[in-house]
Write a protein that binds this DNA or RNA. Structure first.
Lengths: 153, 153
DNA sequence: GCTGGCGTTGACGTCGACGTCAACGTCTAC
DNA sequence: GTAGACGTTGACGTCGACGTCAACGCCAGC
């Protein structure tokens, strides 16, 4: 299998494959004419890389999985080094999600507050800023909990 | 106030301020010697930019807020354009958080599964792999279209 | 033998928000 | 008058994962 065929089968580009090879991630055998040659095992390596990338793994993070597969294991995550990457990624995801949730809440609060102030400024007088304080206007836009998916169609 | 002083007060660098100016985000008056000159209003603009950046806003996304402040409004989010940015960012955050939560769950599943298989392989026999295979284990690892790995060789 | 489609290497471009020089001007203190 | 701390512009570097282009080689079919 040549590079164009492998790229097509994996739904990627030849440039990407050459990039992976330049990183030592997916080396290729060479035919007599210098053309890169791949086999089914390479396709599986490539699929492993792409799957992890879809999960947000960097190319370097996929390396243990690829090495594991090339070492003959039936799965890329059948090696301790891969599990370590899983665990690190999991912790990283938890951190990021937590931070983003906090940011989401903050932005939601700011939006609600700014909307109220704008609504108060436009029709009425300009400075009801401190004397306003509505009792239950806080739920107008987003409740404290961060679950509003699959909402009212 | 000169550039170094403003940078220090805002906890940033002179390079950053020059960068903002190159984007037209934070233009500076000039003293007779060519030095940039800033005042307290500029400090507030800069603080607005930094605050939004901490929330993950790009510099372009901060522009409506800065313009709003420069237009004389008491707050950067006292203008409709700023509210639009808030809303877009909120929707974007919801999307990203949802995606990351899904990824987190998937990675967690993979980790648990891989840990179990590793524990089963080490002490006992090597190949309980095909006898293992839960009924829906095949689709665990497939975000794109055609995907068949980690099972049924 | 010539066109067209594949392949090859090398090198620069992209996006964002700056970092990091280099080479020079300005101002203050000694 | 000179060191040194500040300022100036210009331009290239960084990080990641490639895209894009150039200039060329290889091979099949007509």
């Amino acid at each position: 299998m040549r590079i164009g065929e492998l790229a097509e089968q994996a739904g990627t580009t030849t440039r990407t494959l050459r990039h992976y090879e330049s990183l030592g991630l997916l080396p290729a055998r060479r035919a007599g004419n210098g053309y890169r040659t791949y086999d089914e095992a390479d396709l599986r390596l490539l699929q492993q890389i792409r799957t992890l990338q879809d999960f947000g793994f960097s190319l370097e993070e996929t390396r243990p999985f690829v090495d594991c597969l090339r070492a003959g294991h039936p799965a890329g995550d059948a090696c301790p080094a891969s599990l370590e990457v899983y665990r690190r990624k999991l912790a990283e995801l938890d951190e990021v999600i937590e931070r983003l949730r906090h940011v989401r809440d903050e932005v939601g609060l700011q939006l609600t507050r700014a909307e109220l102030e704008l609504a108060a400024d436009l029709p009425g007088g300009p400075p009801p800023r401190c004397a306003f304080s509505p009792p239950d206007a806080g739920h107008v836009f987003s409740p404290p909990d961060t679950d509003q998916e699959t909402s009212t169609p």
